[in-house]
């Protein structure tokens, strides 16, 4: 295959589709994962509202979801994907399994970020008469914001990796191109280019995320 405008166009569309899948999956992943992570951090034994039974249940659910291999999950949720999107292939459809895979992962990231917040600062807020909502939003999330942002960066990278895997079942995006051309048609050139583009995307997302996190961190002079 020659490096004509068609190929370049296809690759650019691949980048677009990949970013589309990754960004929306991360967004939806956070819509589910952020509250879940907060719940985990708050309900744990040394959280601000210890609820051991609730924590145990959520903990198990998250662990189960996280231990299902993404490829299997991709196939398992096809009925749900059909229900929500109307079809089971293509970029939009892939957002469903990606979100389901991302949410528990994100919940863990959020949980660990929030648990890093200094206990003393939380106690100071309690001693000032802060309610649980203030503590969650102003103290936990406010103080952990750089760590949370690093979490977003890591999540983006992980979801990008997952999205490429979805190429196996016609998920669209760069992974799809790599599989169809590189693997099924033995066009190693295209496969390598796709992988390079994927690597570049991760690098860029990572760099932007870390820069933002550093910019927002006030703990250092």
């Amino acid at each position: 295959m020659s490096w004509d405008t068609e190929t370049i166009k296809m690759l650019l569309e691949g980048v677009r589709d990949t970013l589309y899948m990754v960004l929306f999956s991360t967004l939806f992943g956070y819509l589910l994962g952020l509250p879940l992570g907060v719940l985990l951090a708050v309900s744990d034994r040394d959280g601000i509202r210890p609820r051991p039974v609730l924590y145990r249940i959520l903990d198990i659910i998250v662990n189960i979801l996280r231990s299902v291999p993404f490829l299997i999950l991709l196939i398992l949720v096809i009925p749900l994907t059909r229900l929500l999107v109307g079809k089971s292939y293509g970029s939009t459809a892939t957002i469903v399994p990606l979100t389901i895979a991302a949410a528990p992962f994100i919940a863990r990231m959020v949980e660990s970020s929030l648990k890093e917040v200094d206990r003393g600062v939380i106690e100071a807020a309690v001693s000032l008469g802060a309610g649980i909502r203030t503590i969650i939003f102003q103290v936990l999330i406010g103080e952990a914001r750089t760590s949370l942002l690093v979490g977003v960066t890591i999540s983006l990278g992980t979801i990008l990796g997952y999205s490429a895997m979805a190429g196996v079942v016609g998920g669209g995006g760069l992974g799809d191109i790599a599989i169809r051309y590189g693997y099924y048609r033995y066009e190693t050139g295209i496969m390598i280019v796709t992988v390079v583009v994927l690597v570049a995307l991760v690098q860029i997302l990572q760099a932007i995320g870390m820069m933002l996190a550093k910019f927002l961190d006030r703990r250092r002079v």
């Binding site: 200094d118 100071a124 001693s127 000032l128 750089t146 006030r218 703990r219």
Partner: peptide, 22 residues
């Protein structure tokens, strides 16, 4: 209790300020 705590201030050995706020 939350209301009562506003009347009972506390300061700490390690200050416990919000580090991400001015």
């Amino acid at each position: 209790l939350r209301l009562a705590r506003r009347d009972i201030g506390m300061i700490f050995q390690h200050f416990n300020l919000l580090m991400q706020r001015t």
